Amino acid sequence: MAVAGIVYLLHFDRAFGHARHYTGWTRDLTARLAEHAAGRGARLLAVVHAAGIGWQLARTWEGTRADERALKRQGGASRRCPLCGVTARRR
Rank of each mutant, 00 (worst) to 15 (best):
A66V: 04
A58G: 03
Q74E: 12
A46C: 08
V48S: 12
R27F: 03
L9P: 04
G52N: 00
R91V: 11
S78K: 09
A31H: 06
L10C: 06
P82D: 01
H18E: 15
R65L: 10
L71V: 10
A88H: 08
P82C: 02
W25T: 01
A77T: 07
A31Q: 04
R65I: 08
G41I: 02
T64M: 01
Q74H: 07
I6P: 04
E62P: 11
M1W: 10
L29C: 05
W55H: 05
A66C: 10
W61A: 03
H21L: 05
A50R: 14
T26A: 02
A38M: 09
S78Y: 08
T30H: 11
T26G: 03
G24N: 06
A2D: 09
G76W: 00
R80W: 01
A58L: 00
E35P: 02
L71Y: 11
H21P: 02
W55F: 15
R65V: 11
E68R: 04
R59C: 01
A42T: 11
L29H: 12
T23N: 06
R79F: 00
I53F: 08
L33G: 06
D13E: 13
A42W: 01
C84H: 15
I6R: 14
A2F: 03
R27P: 03
T60H: 02
L83M: 07
D13N: 10
H36S: 02
L29Q: 12
R14V: 04
W25Y: 05
H21W: 10
V48M: 03
C81T: 08
R43M: 13
Y22R: 01
H21S: 04
F16D: 00
C84G: 13
R91I: 11
R73D: 08
A19R: 05
H11S: 15
H18F: 11
D67H: 06
G52P: 08
G17R: 14
G54C: 09
A42H: 14
G41M: 05
T30S: 13
R32F: 00
L10P: 02
Y22K: 02
M1T: 12
W55I: 00
A50T: 10
W25D: 00
R89D: 06
G54L: 01
D13I: 01
R89Q: 09
D13H: 06
R59S: 00
E68Y: 02
L9D: 09
K72P: 04
G17V: 04
L33S: 12
V47T: 12
T64F: 05
A2K: 05
R80S: 11
A88P: 09
I6W: 08
A37Y: 00
R91E: 14
G54Q: 01
L45A: 03
D67E: 09
T30M: 10
G85M: 15
R32P: 03
A77G: 10
H18V: 12
R32D: 07
T23Q: 05
A42Y: 06
C81N: 07
A51Q: 05
R69I: 14
G41C: 01
R79N: 10
E62M: 08
E35N: 13
A50D: 14
A66F: 03
A4G: 13
A46M: 07
D13T: 10
D67Y: 09
F16Y: 15
W55L: 13
R65C: 07
A4R: 07
R65S: 06
L45Y: 02
A15L: 02
R40P: 04
Y8E: 13
C84E: 11
Q56T: 07
T26F: 04
L83T: 04
L57T: 01
